[in-house]
Each structure stands twice: as C-alpha cells, then as structure tokens.
Simulated assay, not measured.
Amino acid sequence: MAQPTALLHGERWPVQGFESIQPGTFDAATVVFPNMAAYRARDWTRKDGFIYGSHGTPTTFELEARIARLEGGLHCLLSPSGLSAIALVYMTFLKPGDELLVPLNVYAANRVFITHELAAWGIHVRLYDPTDLETLEFSDTTKLVWIEAPCSTTFEFPDIVEIAASAQARGVLTALDSTWGAGIAYRPFELGVDIAVQSLSKYANGSGDTVMGAITCNDKGLYEALKLCAMRMGLGVSARDAASILRGLDTLCVRYRAQDAAARFLVSELSRYGDVLRVLHPSLTACPGHTFWQRDCVAAAGIFSLVFQERFSSTDVDRFVDGLKLFKIGFGWGGPVSLALSYGRSVVSAEPLEGELVRISVGLEDPEDLLADLAQGLRLLPSID
C-alpha cells in the first residue's frame, strides 16, 4: 500500500476501554456510514446515529444532553450563538400573518432581529409590559409569546407562571430566554413554559471565549420541528466549541453562586449611594417583579445595573467607567473578569430611566476589591456645586 493511501486508511487506535474526566472531542464534517442501509435509514431528528457534522457528534450530543438536564427538559438543540437560537425559534414557529408577543424591554439584539427580519417577513409584533400583564393581549393570530426573566439590562422580573398559563389556555407557545437563570436560578419547565433558550456564551461557558446557544424543550414534536429547520438552514456547532462549554459546566454551579453572592454584596453596598445612583437587581425589593423573583428563584446571577442621577452627563459616566481598574469594558457576562459598559439613556425599560445606565457583570475577583474599585470610580464624578 502506497504511503499516502496507508496514511489515510490505516487502522485507527481503539477508543473502547478508555475513560477520562472530560468526554472525547470528536471533530467531523463528513461522517462515514458503515453501509448503504445505514445511510438510507438516516433521520436528522434522531440521536442514535450520526449523519454529518452539523447533525451532531458524540461531543455535541453529550453537551445537548447535559443542557437538557440542567434546564430540566428532555430535548436540546445547540445553535451557533444565543441570537441564532432565538432566531431559530422564530423561524420554526412563525409564518407570515402570525403574531408574536414580546416584552417592550426585550434584549436589544432580539429587538433588532424582530424589527428588520420578522417585520419584513410579514410577522406581526405586539409589545407587552412584563410588569403589567393587563398589556398582554392575545389575538386569533397570536402564535408565540416571548419571555425574558429578567430583562438583561434593567432586570424587571415577570410573572412567568401567569404568562405561561395565559398562553397555554389559548393554545399559544411560550419561549423563555433563560440565559440569566442558567439552569441554576430557576427551572423553566416547572414554571410552565414550552421552550427555553440560553446563550451558552455566558455562564455555561464561564471563560468568555466561546459563542454558542441552546434551545431546550420537553415536547418531542417541538424539538423535531426545530431540528429540521436547523438542518435546512445548515446550522451547527463545532465539537471543539462544545468541548469548551462542557468544561465550563463542570464549575457552573460553583461559579454562579459565587458571582451571585458577590453581586448581592456589591448591590447592598452601592445602594447606600442614593444621592448618586439607583441600583437595579431582582433581589432588591424596589426592583419591579421582585416578588416573582422571590417566589420562583433560588439565586440571582451576577449582573446588575447602575442608573446615575440625571445631573450626570454621558461624559461624566464615561469617566467613571474609564476610571475603573478591575472592570474591563465589553459585552457579555458570566466570565471570570468583571465588566462594565455604559448604555446611556436610550435603554428601553418598563419604568422610564432619567439618567445614564451602566451594566455591571461580576467576575471572580474578590468582592471587596471590586467594591473598592467602584468606590474610587464614583469619586471621579463631579461633585455638587
């Protein structure tokens, strides 16, 4: 056998009988079928065989199984990003003429997709106030209700149970962005929702180096519809990225609770600066929806927002952010390094915000060090004349 042929067709090292802490990473685009009968029996919705890299590998199937268990669901589908997971839900279950109900304070990237793509496809959108469910109005064409718990910038926490029950009574699907909960703070399906969408780039990954999303559900029919739509769009994730998320899951519970505790410490301390700012976090009684968070959750994540008094300009607040030593400037949350990012005054929220908003993502630094850094940053603000 010639050397090039021998290199390609030599016997492979057996993997049976080998076990390690982390599951194996199986990279694949082309998957080899043992015979034509196996090829003809292929089914994109099943996980008892392999078809092509975008269908899945042992590595991605392992991650899907773990995310399903984490969320308390039965079926999970990975997607290239959290936003692509959101878009996949919309494209699977909405068609021209259908209506989508979405909270007015929905994640900004979600809003942009709705405004541009869904509107252009003839899908009607009705906004509701998640803090006032009298505004949750259904019609004969309503097919899907989107829920965020909580809003990822202003942290209003909705009554998920009531929204899900209202939708179910009308035969309408509900989909929940559960990224903040991460499978730790609450169990989506125990609250009555049909679909849970999570950006695994955040807490699941925990390192800030991998982008991925996941969709979890209990109903097999919903899963199969999502899987076939993903197949037709050619969506898939790499095994190496999946392996990165799998490693992150090993420490998810410990990291989440540590960042939750640190955030609550900071929130409590910063609430004393009432003459300078307002603090937004579901654990605070003044936060809209606090009672629903208290009823439905066992944790509160590691992100919160600061709303500065109206007298401070964007230049003032930028000076505060730029002056922080430990907090880096960037999108995202759930990673090891703390982040701060100014959103200005244009944030859409259930309650009007009069001043500049800065979102804080708490990392794994010592909470006392983080507090000292925020305190010295606040001293950079101009004093009252």
Rank of each mutant, 00 (worst) to 15 (best):
M1T: 06
Q3S: 07
G10I: 02
G10F: 08
P14V: 05
T25H: 07
V32Q: 13
P34C: 10
N35C: 07
R42T: 10
D43R: 13
D48H: 06
I51V: 15
H55K: 09
T57L: 15
P58A: 09
P58K: 02
F61L: 08
E64W: 00
R69Y: 01
E71R: 02
H75Q: 07
L83S: 13
A85M: 10
G97D: 12
N110R: 05
F113G: 04
F113R: 11
A119K: 13
A120W: 11
H124G: 09
E137H: 09
E137Q: 15
D140C: 07
T142L: 15
K143R: 15
K143S: 14
I147K: 00
F155M: 11
D159I: 01
Q168W: 08
Q168F: 07
G171E: 10
A175D: 05
L176S: 15
G181H: 05
P188I: 03
K202P: 00
K202W: 02
N205Y: 00
G206H: 00
C217V: 13
L228R: 06
S238P: 04
A239F: 06
A239R: 03
A239P: 03
A243D: 04
L246V: 02
L249E: 00
V254K: 09
R257Y: 02
V267M: 01
L270T: 03
L270V: 09
P282A: 14
G289M: 04
G289H: 01
T291P: 01
Q294G: 01
R295S: 09
R295N: 06
A299F: 02
G302I: 03
S305N: 03
L306T: 13
R311W: 01
F312L: 10
S314T: 07
D316F: 05
D322Q: 08
W333F: 12
P336M: 13
P336N: 04
V337G: 02
V337P: 03
L341K: 14
S346N: 13
P352I: 14
L370I: 15
L370D: 07
L371R: 14
A372H: 14
L374G: 06
L378C: 09
D385Y: 12
